[in-house]
Design a protein around this nucleic acid. Sequence first.
DNA 1: TGTACATCAGTGAACGCGCGTTCACTGATGTAC
DNA 2: TGTACATCAGTGAACGCGCGTTCACTGATGTAC
Lengths: 202, 202
Amino acid sequence: MAGKVQKKREDLRAKLIDLAEERIKVGGISAVRARDLAKEAGCAVGAIYNVFGDMNDLVMAVNARTFKRVGAQVSAAVAAEPPGHPVKTMIAMSHAYLHFARDNTPAWRTLFDLEVSTEESVPKWYLEELQKVFSLIADPLKRIFPDMSPEDVSLMTRGLFSSVHGIVLLGLEKRISGVPIDQLEHMITLVFSHLTSTPSEK
Amino acid sequence: MAGKVQKKREDLRAKLIDLAEERIKVGGISAVRARDLAKEAGCAVGAIYNVFGDMNDLVMAVNARTFKRVGAQVSAAVAAEPPGHPVKTMIAMSHAYLHFARDNTPAWRTLFDLEVSTEESVPKWYLEELQKVFSLIADPLKRIFPDMSPEDVSLMTRGLFSSVHGIVLLGLEKRISGVPIDQLEHMITLVFSHLTSTPSEK
DNA sequence: TGTACATCAGTGAACGCGCGTTCACTGATGTAC
DNA sequence: TGTACATCAGTGAACGCGCGTTCACTGATGTAC
């Protein structure tokens, strides 16, 4: 039947990802420990290595989920926004990102805790998901700056994403920004609302 | 004389900071190891704990230096810019920050690798130095937006700092931004020249 | 200047902790006939 | 259906590594008289 073994294998895999996700949601990457996970999953430590090459692979699997959740939340924000106000749309997206990060801080941080070491091996799903987010940004951007060259749109897309990321990142660490979290929304709005206006416009 | 002991103590302290700085410049925080450092300084591991409470204190001492270096480089960029073009000044500052991060990546990263755990105990020098950077930004900002309320200037100052930080941070990780480092300058220029233009200006 | 004593920096082996990963072994599942 | 054998998931004690921190001890420096 070639099924029972494979089934169990897949079950274990799914269970491990679930448990790891739960742990990451609460305590971030450092809360994922082979021994604890095995105990919780009711298997031996070694079994993990039958299903994942590496603890890192497991974390990556959770990150894939987290990444999709961010994307979904930001997409939803875009969908909820009436079209025709691209600046408002971008602000709404940024707020959605902020809210996700605020509500899922450890999981969100884990997204960026990955091995930077291995220069290669950026997984396919990662690039795809990132591309989705980028096109979500590029879309309203093109409407705001219809005459901008595609190269500049691409650069600015990434630049704006990074900007929002930076605001959220430092904003969530009191140590640095010193800004109460409820003012971060306003901060983003403030920074972005000046985007509307280009010297050539109006 | 009360001097020989104290002198040695200060010498050791200075030597340890120098050595740790050298290591951090090359390999970041993980390159600072008590044993290695002691060996290099020609003292015992325990001696480090006579001078610093903690390895963390030592890293903080290095960070104080790094922080001052960033501040100096950004200040220099401001000084080199002719007055009267506040947007250009801000772009120049951002570029200076980018260059510092690019040329001092491990040391710059270490600045943000600190214990976030201890909610308190943000050292005085840290806040002071950060304040300097902020006022460096707020200054041209006020000239661009003369009618902005002080609260909003303060928020936007921090927001813009965070934005630049985000662009630099993600920009230096190929994995995420996918932007060649030589285009980062242009990216910053692009983002800033639009973020800071207002309808009232020309 | 000299002697006795006190202090405290300096020493480094040892402690303690946390953890990922391996590997020789076992036992359940699948396959061949 | 039954038996013999093969495969490979599952096991978990043990390995290995890295490291910060401690602590009983020593010896140089400082102080008191």
